[in-house]
């Protein structure tokens, strides 16, 4: 079934099925952390998650119908936002903590050992608190994640060729499906029409904060790489280089 013919309920169940499995860092964490050891754990985890993120994107109905160029651009633009939203979702029931993985949980104060990271931790914790206040539902979370992916590149490139225009139109229709899905997810919560509209506004406004934290995080990671605090390699290096 093509996504344009799917009900919002079907669409959501497809993106729920696309959710990546829980991932473990699987390292012996030696505490207290050093700047290098914490950055290494963070980047190792990010690299593992990125591989799963590509498989996740491919399972979003309609994503693989976009041009390969668009698929690459979208992922390169939004990967850190997607990682951060996932982190917020895992941390939503743990105030003051960032649950990077079940075997890698950090308190705000542990950010002290990496120069400049506490500011980012605080922004992540603040956005997580907003999601906690809003009592973010799983269905809403998966829609927001798909929205981040599909929206990430919309205002940075103008289609030139017929093929690019076709892919962009597909992208816009796909965004329609995701917005419909989010609206449907909100409508199931038993709120008044006005409360539903407000909730949609509040949830989507949070996306601009996530973009902001992601930009900060991207700068931070490229600084850490430049200063040789951490060795960035493989897929993570490719994704970072696309942004610097």
């Amino acid at each position: 079934v093509h996504h344009s013919a799917m009900s919002p309920e079907e669409f959501i169940s497809r993106i729920m099925e696309a959710e990546p499995p829980e991932i473990y860092l699987m390292e012996d964490l030696k505490k207290p952390f050093t700047e290098a050891s914490m950055m290494m754990s963070l980047t190792n985890l990010a690299d593992k998650e990125l591989v799963l993120m590509i498989s996740w994107a491919k399972k979003i109905p309609g994503f693989v119908e976009l041009s390969l160029t668009d698929q690459i651009h979208l992922l390169k633009c939004c990967w850190l936002e997607i990682l951060m939203l996932g982190l917020m979702w895992r941390s939503v029931d743990h105030p003051g903590k960032l649950i990077f993985s079940p075997d890698f949980k950090l308190n705000r104060e542990e950010g002290q050992c990496v120069e400049g990271i506490m500011e980012i931790f605080d922004m992540l914790l603040a956005a997580t608190s907003r999601f906690r206040e809003l009592k973010l539902q799983r269905e809403e979370y998966v829609c927001l994640k798909a929205m981040i992916l599909l929206n990430s590149n919309l205002c940075t490139s103008a289609p030139q060729t017929a093929e690019e225009l076709e892919s962009r139109n597909k992208l816009l229709r796909l965004l329609d499906s995701v917005i419909d899905a989010l609206v449907w997810a909100i409508s199931k919560m038993g709120l008044s029409t006005q409360q539903q509209t407000l909730r949609l506004g509040h949830l989507t406004m949070l996306l601009s904060h996530i973009r902001h934290v992601s930009n900060k995080g991207m700068d931070h990671l490229s600084t850490m790489k430049r200063k040789n605090v951490v060795l960035v390699y493989d897929l993570l290096l490719e994704m970072l280089d696309a942004n610097t």
Binding site: I54, S55, K58, K59, I72, L235, E238, M239
Partner: peptide, 13 residues
């Protein structure tokens, strides 16, 4: 080929 391109173009198992 980049790793991203490789992952995007491989068929799922």
């Amino acid at each position: 080929h980049t790793k991203l391109l490789q992952l995007l173009t491989t068929k799922p198992e």
